[in-house]
C-alpha cells in the first residue's frame, strides 16, 4: 500500500517538473542568464509555501499519517562543503541542464541521452564516496 503512495507521489512530481518546464535545459540556461522570471517564480513560490507548510507542521505539532512525530534534523553547521559542493553541483546543473529530479523526468519523457547523464551522476556520487575523507568539509 505504502509503495503505491510513493509511486503516485513520484508520478505527480514527475508530471509537475515536466509541465512546469523546470525539467527543460533551456529554462535552466535562461535562469542563469536572468532571461525570465519563470524559474525564480517556481523556486520562490515553492519555498514560500514550503516555509508555511513546515511552520504549520511545527506549530501544530502535526504527526505523520501514521501517527509518528515529525522531526526535521537540522543540517550540520559547516561552510566549505556547502559552498564548494554547491559550486560543483551548479557547474553540472547548468551544463547538463538538469538536476537529479529532472534527469529521471527527461529519461521517462524519452530523451535517451539523459541515461548517460544519470550513469555519470551515479559515478560522480561514487567518486565522492571514495574521496570523501580527503576533502575539506
Amino acid at each position: 500500500m505504502k509503495s503505491i503512495i510513493y509511486l503516485i507521489i513520484g508520478v505527480f512530481f514527475g508530471i509537475v517538473l515536466f509541465k512546469s518546464e523546470a525539467a527543460s535545459w533551456f529554462r535552466i540556461y535562461e535562469m542563469f542568464q536572468f532571461g525570465s522570471f519563470h524559474m525564480y517564480g517556481i523556486i520562490g513560490t515553492a519555498v514560500i509555501t514550503g516555509t508555511l507548510l513546515i511552520q504549520m507542521i511545527k506549530r501544530n505539532r502535526l504527526k505523520t499519517f501514521y501517527g509518528e512525530h515529525i522531526y526535521i534534523t537540522p543540517k550540520e553547521k559547516k561552510l566549505t562543503r556547502y559552498l564548494l559542493g554547491g559550486i560543483i553541483f551548479g557547474l553540472g546543473w547548468a551544463l547538463a541542464g538538469a538536476c537529479p529530479g529532472p534527469m529521471f523526468v527527461l529519461l521517462g519523457a524519452g530523451y535517451l541521452p539523459m541515461f548517460i547523464v544519470i550513469i555519470s551522476a551515479i559515478l560522480g556520487t561514487f567518486l565522492y564516496g571514495l574521496l570523501k575523507d580527503k576533502l575539506p568539509h
Binding site: 559542493g85 551544463l95 547523464v117 555519470s120 551522476a121 560522480g124 565522492y128
Partner: peptide
C-alpha cells in the same frame, strides 16, 4: 555534467 552533478 553528470559527474559534476553527482559529485557536487
Amino acid at each position: 555534467g553528470g559527474l559534476l552533478v553527482g559529485f557536487g
